[in-house]
Design a protein around this nucleic acid. Structure first.
Lengths: 215, 215
DNA sequence: TAGATTGTTAATCGATTAACAATC
DNA sequence: TAGATTGTTAATCGATTAACAATC
């Protein structure tokens, strides 16, 4: 395997797509083997890119034949770390937070939300998908007791940095941030921003341009 | 302005960040002017990148001075098309769909969800944030009557393609897809996939690698 | 004028794609 | 052997960063 730091970020973003596609193939289809052309075709990715992406991690195929669906799925699962369940906490039991807790299919991707926190007294004690909402004051205890490394942040933008400071203090390593704000964290903490505003604006940009051209 | 097709996708993804930051600056801060260094600094983006991004669309600053906050906000808003409200429909009144409808701040980004659709008889007739959930059979009528071009798809993966085929048939131009599946659409329809599985897996990948290194 | 900062060209860096030997 | 497909090197393409003249 190559030095992990030199693997393109774009490759890492494509691996989950391969994984999910192979998972589907292994459940529903009968084919034992898939070629890079087939796999790429289903995802709109050139076969040469599929092979290149995989080559960063080893040799998984057989020349002249293709890739064994079940084996490749397993290999990618291991590379991604989704072969086990990673316990995570979610902070912010608003609409989005509740939606994520209820979201089916995360467990297939290695995520298990084990606790939910909020600072709203009206929400504390409620249950979301059978998980009780706890007070944000209990963060410390839960993170340490359950040895949690992953946190999902779905609080309003103005509360996010404060929450994240606590998370870092209590030992969280990776943060999935849904608040529309930039977070400041130490270098060794990994943050992924899921910025919905960027998503909608890029759509509107294209739409707006299309409309202008038509007129 | 440069030929719009030659503007990097990455630039278009950064414009909303500039826009939101300028919006904050114009509301809360007193400074009339901001430099590319200041603006970039707040977002973790090099000043040279900020200037380059803006340069695709024109000249917005004054040498030796910087950019007028209010003016630049307005200019970027116009470039992105968020200076007006774009009516959109949402299909799939599940948890995620309801979360998006309730999401504050979309209106600032030019999005207005005007109708919600579902095929579940138990949901049809309910209200989400004062918007009545309609039957998916009424899609055609609403799209045409209200001249809608933008649709948000939050239905399960196995229902997505069918819904999208209908949307395309009725004249939708741009689709924001939250279903974890690839959609097949004609070339002139713009689809943006908001794939949450990719998000969580990239976090788990980094976490998993970090853990391995520590052991 | 001196200091600051833009807008743009050129250099660098990184990712994608093409080509092809290896081999099933 | 002939056809198919991998894994990898080299070529291309695209995006970021550095450098600097223009100018406030």
């Amino acid at each position: 395997m190559k030095n992990r730091d030199s693997i393109p970020a774009a490759t890492i973003e494509r691996l989950p797509l391969y994984y999910r596609c192979l998972d589907k193939l292994s459940t529903f289809e009968e084919a034992e083997v898939v070629s890079s052309k087939d796999l790429g075709g289903k995802l709109g990715i050139p076969s040469t890119q599929v092979r290149k992406d995989l080559s960063y991690y080893g040799e998984f195929g057989r020349r002249g034949v293709g890739y064994n669906v079940v084996e490749l799925r397993k290999s990618i699962g291991k590379i991604l770390g989704v072969n086990k369940l990673w316990p995570a906490i979610l902070i912010g039991a608003g609409n989005l937070g509740r939606a994520l807790v209820n979201y089916q299919g995360f467990s297939k991707m290695g995520l298990e939300i084990v606790n939910i926190f909020d600072n709203d007294l009206n929400k504390i004690g409620n249950r979301v998908d059978s998980i009780e909402v706890k007070s944000i004051n209990d963060l410390d205890e839960v993170i340490n007791k359950k040895d949690i490394n992953l946190a999902i942040v779905t609080v309003p933008a103005n509360a996010a940095q404060e929450v994240v400071d606590d998370l870092v203090k209590y030992g969280i390593q990776a943060i999935w941030n849904f608040s529309p704000t930039r977070l400041y964290v130490p270098d060794d903490i990994f943050v992924r921003n899921e910025d919905l505003a960027v998503g909608i604006v890029s759509l509107i940009y294209h739409l707006s341009w299309q409309m202008q051209n038509e007129e």
